[in-house]
Design a protein around this nucleic acid. Structure first.
Length: 526
RNA sequence: GGUCCCAUCGUCUAGCGGUUAGGACAUCGGAUUCUCAUUCCGGUAACAUGGGUUCGAUUCCCAUUGGGACUGCCA
């Protein structure tokens, strides 16, 4: 510990008087009045203009834990890096939260929820640390720090500002004033008293107790360029005063856990319970090796990819949810629960090893999800997607809701035996495109048996019920001397332009007599 | 280099000292069907390696190997 700074110097060093004392802040942000066991969590993205799978992954834990426990889920914007900020990024975040059906509850009294608007809070806490000699102003320039780094590397020491290398940590008040008078703006650094030869024990809800060497780095608490806090300091102040009970974050934060414990200990505050999640990986197509999902290389890392591609958001939730709450899938298959929201997530069971993102399994969840949807809901979902993301052709397909409903309703009447060939809203429309004359692509290379087609036209009556219709097919088969299936196949290809389709009779019923006659006639005349 | 995390079928996992190591996806057969999709039945497939501890290790401990993260006035 060093000598604390006096009030006036603290104000000069911070650029403004601290607005509150710690006691005032404690009163301003009182403990939350919630039932025992309620989780208070937050999703805290940086507004970088990009929402990735990892964001959804951790937000799902936050939201689920809060909602299942009767707690609170907050949205906090971590806009402390003015250089990386992107316009419109906050709306992107909010839209994603809405699209996935999450609701956040930003109670005014714990706000504001933009870190850029919480300067007074950070300044007040920093003032306390400065007064107690647990933080100090540092006037090191970027160039000077680079010099230090070079020296440390050459000598084989760990890089960073610590101990002997921390030039300004024991500056006297007069020396500080001299720097200030010189027009220099300091960063506020932690005055670390940690001893790397001792160990600190930290807790993680998934991994249990983890020990690290104590932190001895004088990390930056408040940056000089804009007076905003670093992640570490913001985390301390915000999660304490927002009364967060559980901090869910990526495992890349594990190494800074000793620092965070140190910070909370210095303030005499209880740290939140940490849940560090493993990263979502994929196999690199070029190297064949497993690696973290990359923003640049992997389009499927971007949530916009799934939204634009028409993936049901619920399928993504079910897929990720099953990873985060192992056993959900089994419970669902057994009928014990209906959706992920009915299944209890246990923090301890959240996996700690990195997982591969499995598109095949996602497809399976999507098929299951769509397969279980009532036709009306399917039509709505597909229509909404087409109108927002679809092509003009897609929009045309959804224009007649009644026809679309008939098309999508094929083989969906028996809930035990629904078709599961719909994966995304987009792919659904592509799958059934042949039902529209404009989109129909005839199979020009197919070798039709024209006798069969002519014979069909002779006896075809759109009003026939299925048995009558089938008996006519059988009769044609006998007459022309080919198999029933071959007769059906000729009709199928003539109508749909392909060899794989749902039930033929249903197709004809939906198409209607004119379209059926038209397409068969087209083959015969063409 | 230093610190830390992780390790069960191809993938995601169950297992918490004694199991024929279970499930799901994928895959491969078979049955059903006018094709496809469904549905049903069945198969292939895993405890990274080496030491301990123990009567007994997938399970506990330690190494090794492999993968990952961090080591910024970015989060």
């Amino acid at each position: 510990m060093r000598n604390g700074l006096d009030k006036d110097l603290i104000a000069r060093v911070l650029g403004a008087e601290p607005k509150w004392t710690i006691a005032e802040l404690e009163a301003k942000f009182p403990p939350r009045d919630l039932p025992d066991g309620a989780f208070v969590t937050r999703f805290a993205p940086s507004p970088t203009g990009f929402m990735h799978i990892g964001n959804l992954y951790s937000m799902l834990i936050d939201y689920k834990l809060a909602s299942q426990s009767g707690g609170v889920f907050m949205l906090r914007i971590e806009d402390t890096d003015t250089k990386r900020e992107v316009e419109g990024a906050v709306d992107l975040v909010k839209n994603a939260i809405r699209d996935f059906g999450f609701k956040y509850n930003n109670d005014e009294i714990y706000g504001p929820y933009f870190q850029s608007q919480r300067k007074d809070i950070y300044r007040s806490v920093a003032a306390e640390l400065l007064a107690r000699g647990l933080a100090y102003p540092c006037f090191l320039t970027a160039d000077e720090m680079e010099e230090i780094r070079v020296k440390q590397n050459a000598a084989g020491f760990a890089t960073g500002i610590y101990g002997e290398w921390a030039r300004d940590r024991d500056l006297t008040a007069d020396e500080i004033i001299a720097h200030l008078d010189n027009g220099e703006v300091p960063t506020i650094r932690l005055y670390s008293t940690g001893d790397p030869n001792k160990r600190i024990f930290c807790k993680d809800a998934v991994r249990g107790s983890i020990s690290f060497p104590e932190n001895n780095e004088d990390l930056v608490l408040i940056k000089s360029n804009d007076g905003l806090p670093t992640y570490h300091f913001a985390h301390l102040c915000d999660d304490h005063f927002m009364r967060t009970t559980h901090v869910v974050r990526g495992e890349e934060w594990l190494p800074s856990l000793p620092l965070h414990y140190q910070l909370f200990n210095m303030m005499g505050w209880t740290p939140p319970i940490y849940i560090h999640t493993a990263t979502l990986d994929k196999i690199d197509a070029e190297t064949g090796k497993q690696r973290k999902m990359s923003k640049r290389k992997d389009p499927e890392n971007n949530l916009a990819f799934f939204l634009a591609g028409g993936w049901p958001t619920e399928a993504l939730i079910e897929y990720l949810g099953n990873i985060l709450a192992p056993g959900y899938e089994e419970a669902k298959l057994k009928g014990a629960v209906k959706t992920f929201w009915d299944y209890e997530m246990k923090p301890k069971k959240i996996p700690m090893s990195g997982g591969l993102f499995d598109m095949k399994k996602l497809e399976w969840w999507a098929k299951e999800y769509i397969g279980a949807m009532p036709v009306a809901d399917l039509v709505t979902a597909v229509t909404n997607w087409a109108n927002e993301y679809g092509t003009d052709e897609n929009k045309m397909q959804v224009a007649d809701a009644k026809y679309l409903s008939a098309v999508l309703g094929i083989e969906r009447d028996n809930p035990k035996r629904v078709r599961k060939d719909f994966i995304t809203w987009k792919q659904t429309l592509e799958n059934v495109a042949f039902f529209w004359d404009k989109l129909f692509v005839p199979a020009i290379d197919y070798e039709y048996n024209r006798d069969v087609l002519r014979a069909f036209l002779e006896t075809y009556d759109p009003a026939d019920d299925k048995d009558t219709w089938w008996n006519k097919i059988v009769a044609i088969a006998e007459k022309t001397g080919i198999k029933n299936g071959d007769v059906a196949m000729n009709l199928r290809v003539a109508l749909a332009g392909r060899t794989n389709t749902p039930d033929l009779y249903s197709i004809m019923s939906v198409m209607g007599g004119d379209m059926v006659r038209g397409r068969i006639g087209r083959v015969l005349n063409g």
